[in-house]
Design a protein around this nucleic acid. Sequence first.
RNA 1: GGAGGGGUGGCCGAGUGGUCGAAGGCGACGGUUUGCUAAACCGUUAUAGGGUGUAAAGCCCUAUCGAGGGUUCGAAUCCCUCUCCCUCCGCCA
Length: 422
Amino acid sequence: MFDIKWIRDNPEAFDAGLGKRGLAPLAAQMIALDSNRRAAQTTLQDLQRRRNEASKAIGAAKSRGEDAAAEMAEVQGLKEAFQKLEAEEREHAQALNTALAAYPNTPNEDVPEGADEAANVEIRRWGEKPELSAEARQHFELGEALGLMDFERAAKISGARFVVLSGALARLERALAGFMLDLHTGEFGYTEVAPPILVRENAAFGTGNLPKFAEDLFKTVDDYWLIPTAEMPLTNLVAGDILEEADLPLRFTAYTPCFRAEAGAAGKDTRGMIRQHQFGKVELVSIAHPDRSDEEHERMTDCAEEVLRRLDLHYRTVVLSTGDMGFSARKTFDIEVWLPGQDTFREISSCSNCGDFQARRMNGRFRPDGAKGTHFVHTLNGSGLAVGRTLVAILENYQNPDGSISVPEILRPRMGGMERIG
RNA sequence: GGAGGGGUGGCCGAGUGGUCGAAGGCGACGGUUUGCUAAACCGUUAUAGGGUGUAAAGCCCUAUCGAGGGUUCGAAUCCCUCUCCCUCCGCCA
């Protein structure tokens, strides 16, 4: 959601931002919609003032027991014009708001320009590829051989893109989630939240998933949306609020299931757990002061990376190019973990600074200390981490020649002391 | 699922068609008084939009009493829809 006043004052910057996203200029059109709206509003307000004055006069006359028929007739005469103007104003406002909500966020200055992921820029790399004595196997080969990962049974129950984990792998998933939550709450100051995972339309609008990306989401028969990420409920925690400056930043984390329709992903990552309709994720959300959101963004990304460092998993961090960023983001870091079985880096976390883009959609504000008025907060979200993909990474990186999996040191207490699966 | 009752400013709470953005209280802020504190007294105390203004301030206007429609010259007050909360009954992890 854009600020029409800002577009009015910075039309070139707005169009430049759209250009980086590969979109045509729109500032002139937006400004035209806005001046239509303002013209209609001014006319309407004039009429409203006349009506209010007359009605007050009528009230005053009646309370004195006088006749007010002339004024009543006059206002009644305005009625038709009134309804027409009201409808016009409403239409213009709606047209403008729809337009302001329809386009993706303006990328930050320092975001590399490019059409797609090929233009992403690696900014750091940590750790090393594991030395495997045998040919690296993919996670699903390992999991199925262990008899602890079952796609066929999942298909019987739910169809494609689901999995049944059992035994030590089911426990490993739980251990990972607990480890991540304890790290973020215990060491990084995040507050653990257990949010709803069915949300209403307005929450999905607030984060920018609706109206444009409805086909990516699941919806229940009674109009709830299943969350594709805990970003949705966590960010909407401050919807409609006016916070105190001293409250910022707010940091929330949650472990939730996430649901994605994966429309348009047909044929992609069909084997294994990489792309599922349902997966677990520990999410990080920060509600930040506008002056400190970039710094918070770096901090959040580091919190997510720390999970991989403690699990001793090789990864790299990239800045997404303008063509690869999501709708609401103005800058995004992806963290990609090394998967030996696939011989490639795969996204395991995506950390975005959305600036005031989502805050405007959900009307989340704060009051500066001692000052009058309010400002929109900045919202940030990041995976800390995608638990399913972390489990995949552990299987592939910690595999042994005999098909067993070593349990990472730091998870052993959570696995009842288990050192090896299988 | 059935029956009923509610949603008013930071909080509490009055207000069932007429100059109500809204009494009163509390809280907060500023000031006066006071040796200090307390008390007392005076004042201020929402959000958004539009207009005017180089800008800030100021001034003028409009909207907002859960949300959206409607009735009316006029709606916090009447009607409809939605939403949230509460009470009782039923069901239930």
